[in-house]
């Protein structure tokens, strides 16, 4: 029973089906229970929340990541799956504390000063939530001092910085220096992403990592977290 529901949750996350009304990647799935109905059924059946998360949600996003890497899935497909996981996590939220399930880590996401682009940051954020992290998106066009303040107050494990322009990516180095000056640098790992930045640039400015795309960003953080 339990294995069957978990397997169905996994399958429906991979299909990106949130509710009974949704089509999946494969057609003719509308009418069958989606992730919302299945997670509610799993809770009603007394299935452990950690089992739903680990065997149902996290495992399914790993499968989606593999499909993306091999070219079977495209960005919209992985976003549909990540949205399904996001919906499942909302349903599970009230049950997390009493079941003792903790997020894998806390991540602050920000787009740097002068830069208004946030689609890439949104994609990475939803994938990280799908992977089991607590993500707080603090916005775009943010002053260095506001990012430092957020790090001080929120105490994240990771800080994700995004920029789409060569003219704005230089702020990333300023932020790292400001965190050093504030005594916060060794308390947070910094991952950068966005079209103009690179692994080399990350090293050059003293960031801890670089995410080439959404799933790569998740993978970099998982490695830092000792999970891969």
């Amino acid at each position: 029973m339990s294995e069957n529901i978990i397997e169905l949750i996994k399958e429906n996350v991979i299909q990106g089906r949130i509710t009974r009304d949704d089509e999946g990647i494969e057609e003719d799935m509308a009418g069958q229970p989606g992730v919302t109905e299945l997670v509610e059924e799993a809770l009603a059946s007394g299935i452990d929340v950690s089992e739903i998360i680990n065997k149902g949600l996290t495992a399914s996003m790993q499968a989606v990541g593999q499909k993306f890497e091999t070219g079977e899935y495209f960005i919209p497909d992985m976003l549909a799956s990540a949205e399904a996981v996001g919906t499942a996590m909302e349903i599970l939220k009230p049950h997390l504390e009493k079941s003792g399930v903790k997020p894998k880590g806390k991540i602050l996401m920000a787009t740097v000063k002068g830069d208004l682009h946030d689609i890439g940051k949104n994609i990475v954020s939803i994938l990280l939530r799908g992977a089991g992290y607590m993500v707080k998106d603090i916005g775009n066009n943010l002053d260095t001092k506001d990012i430092v303040k957020a790090v001080r107050e929120e105490k994240p494990d990771y800080l994700g910085l995004s920029a789409l322009l060569t003219s704005t990516m230089v702020s990333m180095e300023d932020i790292i220096k400001a965190l050093e000056e504030s005594g916060l640098r060794d308390k947070v790992k910094i991952i950068i992403g966005g079209a103009p930045v690179s692994e080399e640039y990350a090293r050059e400015i003293g960031a801890d990592g670089y995410g080439a795309d959404g799933f790569h960003g998740v993978s970099v953080i998982e490695t830092m977290n000792g999970i891969n």
Binding site: P76, L79, A80, A82, E83, D118, I119, N122, I123, I126
Partner: peptide, 12 residues
């Protein structure tokens, strides 16, 4: 839409 978690719709 993105703030509501509907990132696919926001991206489209």
């Amino acid at each position: 839409l993105a703030d509501k978690g509907l990132v696919l719709q926001a991206t489209v």
